[in-house]
């Protein structure tokens, strides 16, 4: 974590009084890829541990057993591993397993990350339990009335504070990069158990008929220290290539606005914003980006922001440390040449 989260978890009680709250356990649905928990999994554990020590992680998919060990070292007291769930997609059966487990143990809350699978499992669990869910959570707080969530509305322009009533377990979808993960504690004493999820009937009928892997050049958007994002201002896919070139020279990652993704200049996985990635790099360079609310919510917490736009009134300038009124197709070639000259 580079910058401290703006909101994140905080308690209203001095250390030690937490237990008086009689908080139940918090469960974290921890996604992993080939044995490595996703960064959001550690963030969820961090958020949960700030509220209680009684934290369980639930993980699944190929490599879940290897991931379980790491989850124990990052704050989970117990881990339930649901196996690889093939051949379907994970969400329907993970939700079915959670519904069973909730009926047995009634945790205080279940935390999910805002990812494809996280959203889907949370939605399915909410429907199964007939309990509401809170999305876009960026902060959590423990009060005398139990946990209270801060969450974005209207593309993040407003911040609401909400709590559940009679909803145990509360279902929370947390946004990435808003909660600090805990330091690794090794070795851990966490227990790991396997549980076979029940069948999920027709909801589990989706099959993958083809999968084309995308080769990742350079750092991922989540991890990059520098992100260079291009918007509609480039005008063509050929000119948009300058964004990738600049990102590569800076050893950073390429981002795109929804307009650039919709135009087919970049894959959806490069989209930054409300429906795409949340990034908080050291430096964010926005080129030909207007600065719509839905884009700002994905990048405005970057440590430093530079924006290049030919319109002096562009909204992106309102969040930039340096705004440059310029034609991207004139400035980027000069910037690229200047960087190449330094090598």
């Amino acid at each position: 974590m580079t910058a401290l989260p703006k909101y994140g978890c905080f308690r209203c009680f001095p250390n030690g009084r937490r237990s008086e709250m009689n908080m139940g356990s918090i469960w974290v649905v921890a996604e992993q890829h080939r044995g490595q928990p996703l960064p959001i999994a550690f963030e969820l554990l961090g958020a949960a541990r700030d509220l209680t020590d009684n934290v369980r992680a639930i993980t699944f998919g190929q490599g879940a057993t290897a991931a379980a060990k790491l989850l124990g070292e990052h704050g989970a007291r117990s881990i339930v591993e649901l196996g690889d769930l093939a051949p379907g997609l994970p969400a329907p059966r993970v939700a079915a397993a959670l519904a069973e487990m909730v009926a047995e143990e009634r945790p205080e809350a279940v935390f999910f990350g805002t990812t494809f699978d996280g959203r889907e499992i949370a939605a399915r669990l909410s429907a199964r339990l007939r309990r509401p869910l809170l999305a876009n959570v960026i902060g959590l707080e423990l009060t005398v009335d139990g946990p209270v969530a801060h969450h974005g509305l209207n593309g993040g322009e407003e911040l609401a504070t909400t709590r559940f009533i009679n909803a145990r377990p509360g279902i929370y979808l947390l946004r990435p990069k808003c909660f600090a993960p805990r330091d690794r504690e090794s070795p851990s004493t966490a227990t790991v158990a396997h549980r076979e999820p029940p069948e999920a009937g027709a909801t589990d009928a989706v099959r993958v008929v083809a999968h084309q892997e995308v080769v990742q050049h350079g750092p991922t958007l989540d991890a990059a220290e520098i992100v260079v994002t291009g918007g509609r201002g480039f005008g063509s896919v050929e000119k948009f290539a300058q964004v990738e070139q600049l990102a590569e020279l800076l050893k950073g990652a390429t981002g795109a606005t929804r307009a650039a993704v919709d135009a087919g200049w970049a894959p959806y996985s490069a989209q930054v914003g409300q429906t795409g990635k949340i990034v908080k790099p050291n430096v964010y360079i926005a080129c030909g980006v207007s600065g719509a609310t839905q884009h700002l919510v994905g990048m405005k917490d970057s440590s430093h922001i530079i924006a290049i736009n030919k319109d002096p009134e562009a909204a992106i300038f309102s969040v930039s440390d340096l705004g440059i009124v310029a034609d991207v197709n004139a400035l980027l070639p000069r910037l690229i040449r200047a960087l190449e000259a330094r090598r």
Binding site: L159, T161, S320, D321, G323, I324, V325
Partner: peptide, 29 residues
């Protein structure tokens, strides 16, 4: 079980302060 949400407050989100804006004179790089 009569589960519901209670919204306690809604406030404008914190805005980041704007910095300097310059016009490219051919040396902005």
């Amino acid at each position: 079980d009569g589960a519901s949400e209670e919204v306690r407050s809604i406030v404008p989100a914190q805005q980041r302060a704007a910095g300097e804006v310059i016009v490219d004179d051919g040396t902005a790089e």
